[in-house]
């Protein structure tokens, strides 16, 4: 019971160890706290799941009806390609910005820094609304009415890409900085051209540091595109909103969108795992 056995008294004779100490069985500590915590979490989880399944207001039959309806699938398709376009353009611009930021040219460095500062400062919603109303500043561009040029979908692509590029620039820059400076020197000493150094030596190694945050950004962008519903671009969210404004089945239709976003996110996470493996070549320890 008491704990003051050895510390306060003179040390007792050391435990006599048997010759075959390896035969002494080891009794693991009881981890009571762990078991209690696990049980509590499981109970709460079970309650939540049954509550969701048994609450008729979710109207799972309605969810099933609309899940693969034409308008929802059209919205999903727009969400998917908008995400893809924004990612590709955003990272292309972001890579240029990162290259500018790391260049020896002070003007390029400053402009790149300024870009990232500006576009990270403006909330994407504010930016979309600004582009949407750009006609107020410039009624005519290239001899065309600005409102005809800046359609909702064009505004969505421009706004999201400019926003994405600011973050992509930082991700790519971080990746490049993670590559040992000696790699570039070795490539220079071997006479490899600037282009070759970049594509063959630096970028593949930078990808290891770029892919995880880029995967994060991809998933963030997928969900972030739902913001374009405010300028009436018919993405996944806007498509279900169109339905529930008509039928008032708000919750089941939001569940349709929720499940679709979850499905696509899961697929992307699996893809990221394989991409990461691809760029981990040569990082293992000795065989």
């Amino acid at each position: 019971m008491s704990s003051d056995t050895t510390l306060t008294k003179a040390p007792a004779a050391p435990d006599d160890l048997p010759v075959h100490a390896d035969e002494l069985p080891i009794v693991p500590q009881r981890r009571l706290g762990q078991w209690t915590a696990a049980a509590a979490v499981l109970v709460l989880l079970g309650l939540s799941v049954t509550s969701v399944l048994r609450n008729r207001a979710f109207q799972w039959d309605v969810v099933a009806d609309y899940f693969t309806s034409d308008s929802v699938l059209r919205g999903l398709w727009l969400t998917l390609w908008l995400t893809a376009v924004v990612m590709v353009l955003g990272f292309a611009l972001g890579t240029l910005l990162a290259a500018a930021r790391l260049s020896a040219n002070p003007v390029l460095r400053a402009v790149s820094w300024g870009y990232v500062w500006l576009f990270r400062s403006i909330p994407i919603l504010v930016q979309l609304l600004l582009w949407f109303n750009i006609g107020a500043l410039y009624p005519h561009l290239f001899g065309v009415r600005t409102v005809d040029l800046f359609t909702p979908i064009a505004v969505a692509i421009i706004g999201l890409t400019l926003h994405e590029a600011a973050y992509a620039a930082e991700v790519v820059r971080g990746g490049i900085l993670s590559v040992d400076r000696g790699q570039v020197e070795a490539a220079q000493a071997l006479g490899l051209s600037r282009w070759r150094r970049w594509w063959r030596i630096v970028l593949p190694q930078a990808m290891r540091a770029i892919v995880p945050p880029a995967g994060n950004m991809l998933i963030g962008t997928l969900k972030g595109t739902s913001i374009v519903s405010v300028i009436a671009v018919q993405d996944l969210l806007f498509s279900v909103q169109l339905v529930y404004h008509r039928t008032y089945q708000v919750i089941p239709l939001l569940m349709v969108a929720t499940v679709w976003y979850t499905v696509v996110t899961s697929v992307l996470s699996v893809g990221q795992y394989y991409v990461e493996k691809r760029y981990a070549r040569g990082t293992g320890a000795a065989r």
């Binding site: 000696g182 790699q183 020197e185 030596i201 593949p204 190694q205 760029y279 040569g282 990082t283």
Partner: peptide
Amino acid sequence: FQNFHLFPH
């Protein structure tokens, strides 16, 4: 180089 600088990938 002192630290080899082989291309690890």
